[in-house]
Simulated scan of single mutants.
Amino acid sequence: MSDAVVIDARGHRCPVPSLRLMKAMQDAAPGARLVLMATDPMARIDVPFLMAQKGGRVVAVEDVDGGLRITIETGGWPGVQTD
């Protein structure tokens, strides 16, 4: 996972983790892997919803070190907007 961009949103509550992930998605190439580190338990719900809205997909949700590590892959399909 060394080529994944890591977004550290630990210690922040909703909507900060999702906002940081959306910003990273805007800057990422289609098909890029991003890893969101979050301690807000709502990220487990918010990120899949965000991916459904923005055209990415959740690859993995893992419980680590008292928080979550959520790996996503950005969409690369025509017409998909990340902003």
Score class of each variant (00 low, 15 high):
D83M: 12
I7Y: 09
P78D: 05
G31D: 04
V61S: 13
L68C: 04
V6G: 01
D65R: 09
V5N: 00
L19T: 14
R33M: 09
M51I: 02
V59Y: 00
A43M: 09
Q26D: 09
D40Q: 03
P41W: 03
M22C: 14
L50Y: 14
V64G: 00
L19S: 11
W77M: 11
R44F: 08
D83N: 11
A28T: 12
K54T: 08
M1Y: 10
T82H: 15
T74D: 10
G55I: 08
L34D: 05
L50K: 12
M51S: 01
D46T: 12
V59K: 05
H12I: 00
A29Y: 02
Q53R: 14
T39G: 06
W77K: 12
P17K: 03
M37D: 02
I70F: 10
P41C: 11
A4C: 04
R13C: 04
A29D: 12
V59C: 07
V64C: 03
G31L: 03
A38D: 07
G31E: 03
D8A: 01
M51N: 02
V80P: 00
D46A: 14
T39H: 05
M42Y: 06
A9M: 11
I72T: 09
L21W: 10
I72Q: 01
A24Q: 11
L19C: 07
A4N: 05
R20Q: 14
R10G: 03
D3G: 04
R20A: 12
L50G: 06
R20T: 00
A9C: 10
I72M: 06
K54Q: 09
V58H: 05
Q26W: 10
A4Q: 01
G67I: 06
V80E: 12
I7H: 08
K23R: 12
T82N: 13
F49S: 12
A32Y: 02
P17L: 04
V47D: 11
I70C: 09
A38K: 07
S2W: 04
D27S: 13
D8S: 04
A28P: 13
D40T: 03
G56I: 14
K54F: 10
A28R: 11
Q26L: 13
L21E: 11
K23L: 12
M22I: 15
V47I: 15
R20F: 04
P41E: 13
M22H: 15
G79L: 06
M42F: 05
V16D: 09
A52G: 15
D27P: 00
K23H: 06
D63H: 15
G55F: 09
R20L: 15
L34R: 08
M37G: 01
T39P: 07
F49T: 13
V47Y: 08
T74A: 08
A28Y: 05
Q53M: 14
D63E: 15
Q26F: 07
M22W: 12
A24D: 11
V35M: 11
M25P: 14
R20Y: 03
H12P: 02
G67A: 08
V35Q: 07
A9Y: 05
K23Q: 11
T71C: 12
M25N: 13
I72R: 02
K23F: 01
